[in-house]
């Protein structure tokens, strides 16, 4: 049972990391202009907002999708 839990946790961790790669890609395209010496605070704010707004978007869409499914049944 420990082995199973361990594998589940690691597989979940892999999924989270895949999501981090995807979000970094999307938010890099949204927020990064020319790379500079440091991440300036404007880019930093854009990045964290981008992550939260992307998740908001996904949640809004998933919620509405479920409502449509239930209405359809």
């Amino acid at each position: 049972p420990e082995m199973k839990e361990f594998i589940q946790m690691e597989s979940q961790r892999a999924q989270l990391q895949a999501q981090v790669h995807k979000l970094t890609d999307i938010c890099w395209e949204q927020c990064m202009d020319k790379p500079r010496d440091k991440l300036d605070s404007r880019t930093e704010t854009c990045m964290t907002n981008c992550v939260d707004r992307f998740i908001d978007t996904s949640l809004q869409i998933a919620t509405r999708f479920q409502q449509l499914l239930q209405r359809g049944q």
């Binding site: 989270l16 999501q19 981090v20 790669h21 979000l23 970094t24 938010c27 890099w28 927020c31 990064m32 790379p35 500079r36 010496d37 991440l39 930093e44 990045m47 964290t48 992550v51 939260d52 998740i55």
Partner: peptide, 24 residues
């Protein structure tokens, strides 16, 4: 440019990772 870009990409990765974790 490549060296800076790489550093900024890793900064971004860390930032996104933290923001995503705290959102979860």
């Amino acid at each position: 440019c490549i060296a800076m870009c790489m550093d900024r990409y890793m900064d971004s990765w860390n930032l996104v990772s933290k923001a995503y974790g705290s959102r979860i």
